[in-house]
Write a protein that binds this DNA or RNA. Structure first.
Length: 582
DNA sequence: TTAGGGTTAG
């Protein structure tokens, strides 16, 4: 049965190739019950092309059949299959197929060579790509804009941005080929990714003046890179410029630009552009709004976040679980626990299933507000909701208990966590370490650091911050100093991978070396990293926007607006001048 | 060939 069905395939392929003018379209009605390893079933009406071939075994099977059948499919069909195989990231398989095609005497064309150049570029072997380009000329083919685009892309992929730009310039200067929008988009994308945002802008302007039109992809890439590089004003300038040039922003361009304005704290501009996007009647989803709601809530502007949710609902865009999570977290950050709980409880009415992140956020809100029993109640509720606890939810709850001085309960929960097979992470150990230090169990704290190392969890700056402060508080200054002295060697050792702070990252270091033993304690305790964003791994910390819960008595709002102002100031050093010079 | 999402540690 299988053998006879398989025998049908060549006839189908050959027959359909003869019937259809489009060589890449195979009408495979008889693929039904072909029984390819019992896994392939095609609807009788299914019109497939190679893009629906998504596993390498089937692709290889088709390739072998194409090699075997007579009349043989055209090279265009082989090219199409090669492209599909490369898209599956099976580069070696594609190169083997190419070898077999050559060995079988299939007449290759320039597209085959371009596809293979592309394949080598994806393997970071742009050098071989150029070698093939040599054969290209020998065979009398003229590489087209697509081939050169592939090579430019290959150079960028291989971190050869300078060479990529040189090649582009050569093509332009010597009029070897006319750049099209795809080539320009690849050039600007590569330049931006390599950090040469100004150069990307330069080419956008130059090419526009030369009459070469860039597309929305190119403009969006540069706009996105500009604001992410702190140049929001330039991003806005380019955004307006593209419209003047008749290239209209799509939903991606709008969301990127609005995001930039949001990050820069330019709320009025952000709202203007948001309304402009809405008026464009683009197809918007919750995700297109969520990012802005998230930023507003994180900045403590929950009311504005709510307004934004209102706007999205007016557009018939329903909030999703992430929208709700964002608001819940925003309420928690402000200590509005009743509102947070109310929203969480109303999710089902909105047709949304609460997730573990929302519960985690709520628990944390309760813990930080000193309502550990409420948090514990939520913690217990999680299982009944069909959700599983994660390392993070355990961490939140353990920290809540330890901070209340409920050390026994905290450790009991840690044991439960391990018993449940939930892996402790760096957060867990730092929380436990802090608990031990606060409980004056400093020797246990030292042991815990060894334990975590043994378990493959590398201590970080937070770990040492806690431990050294703990030691100083207990009067164990010598040991604190010893540990601090060991940090540089740890950080630089390849055998011990750790992101521990090194000497230069501690502002307290030079002072510690100068002071006498009696006064060390207080000074060592003030040692902090010089650059708080330098080695932080948390995304919001990296942006210097880590929110501070209201009840800590520290307002982060002012600091954050300060950061926005700084960003705005930076953006005033505009690129406009450079752009207009072209 | 363009963007965008999550809770926790000092």
């Amino acid at each position: 049965m299988r053998a006879s069905a398989m025998a049908l395939i060549p006839r189908i392929i050959a027959g359909e190739l003869a019937t259809f003018t489009h060589p890449f379209s195979l009408f495979c009605s008889n693929f039904r019950n072909v029984g390819y390893e019992g896994r392939r079933h095609f609807s009788s009406m299914l019109r497939i092309d190679f893009s629906s071939v998504n596993d390498i075994q089937f692709a290889s099977f088709l390739f072998r059949e194409m090699i075997r059948i007579r009349p043989q499919p055209s090279v265009a069909v082989f090219n199409k299959l090669l492209t599909v195989v490369i898209k599956m990231d099976c580069h070696s398989a594609a190169l083997s197929m190419f070898d077999e095609m050559r060995a079988s005497g299939i007449p290759l064309n320039e597209y085959t060579f371009s596809i293979i150049i592309h394949c080598y570029c994806l393997q970071n072997r742009v050098d071989i790509g150029f070698a093939i380009l040599g054969s290209f000329f020998k065979l009398g083919y003229n590489p087209d804009v697509a081939t050169f685009t592939t090579l430019i892309k290959g150079l960028f992929l291989d971190d050869k941005a300078v060479e990529a730009e040189k090649l582009f310039k050569k093509l332009l200067d010597h009029k070897i080929c006319e750049p099209n929008d795809v080539m320009i988009a690849n050039l600007t994308n590569g330049l931006c990714k390599a950090g040469s945002i100004r150069t990307a802008c330069y080419y956008l302007e130059l090419l526009a003046k030369m009459g070469y039109s860039a597309n929305v992809y190119a403009y969006t890439t540069v706009i996105d890179s500009l604001w992410k590089g702190g140049m929001v004003e330039d991003a806005l300038w380019l955004f307006r410029k593209m419209i003047v040039r008749g290239i209209f922003p799509d939903v991606i361009t709008y969301t990127s630009m609005i995001h930039g304005l949001c990050r820069a704290g330019r709320w009025e501009d952000m709202l203007d552009l948001l309304h402009e996007m809405i008026n464009q009647k683009l197809s918007l989803k919750a995700v297109n709004f969520n990012v802005f709601v998230n930023i507003l809530c994180k900045k403590g502007m929950v009311k504005e976040g709510e307004d934004l949710v209102e706007i999205m609902m007016q557009q018939n865009v329903n909030p999703d679980i992430f929208t709700c999570f964002t608001l819940i977290d925003g309420y928690c950050l402000q200590g509005q626990m009743d509102r947070a709980k109310e929203l969480l409880d109303s999710l089902a009415d909105k047709g949304l299933k609460p997730d573990i992140f929302s519960y985690g956020s709520l628990m944390d809100g309760y813990c930080k507000g000193g309502k550990v029993n409420e948090a514990w109640h939520i913690f217990l509720e999680v299982h009944s909701k069909g959700l599983q606890h994660t390392t993070s939810t355990y961490n939140i709850m353990i920290q809540g208990l330890l901070r209340e001085g409920r050390f026994g309960d905290g450790w009991k929960l840690f044991n439960d966590m391990e018993a449940q097979g939930v892996q402790p992470d760096l957060f867990t150990y730092n929380i436990l370490l802090d608990g031990l230090c606060k409980a004056h169990q400093i020797d246990d704290a030292i042991s815990l650091v060894h334990t975590m190392e043994e378990r493959g969890v590398n201590p970080d700056t937070v770990t040492y911050d806690i431990l050294i402060s703990g030691l100083c508080n207990e009067g164990r200054v010598d040991l604190a100093r010893d540990i601090l002295n060991q940090l540089p060697s740890k950080g630089g050792s390849s055998s011990c991978e750790t992101n521990a702070p090194d000497k230069s990252t501690w502002t307290g270091w030079s002072k510690i070396e100068q002071i006498d033993d009696e006064s060390q304690s207080s000074i060592v305790c003030t040692a902090r990293r010089r650059d708080p964003s330098g080695s932080a791994s948390h995304a919001s910390t990296q942006r210097g926007e880590k929110p501070v819960r209201e009840w800590t008595g520290v307002s982060s709002r002012r600091a954050m607006h300060g950061a926005s102002d700084a960003l705005a100031q930076r953006s005033k050093r505009t690129l406009g001048g450079a752009i207009q010079e072209v």
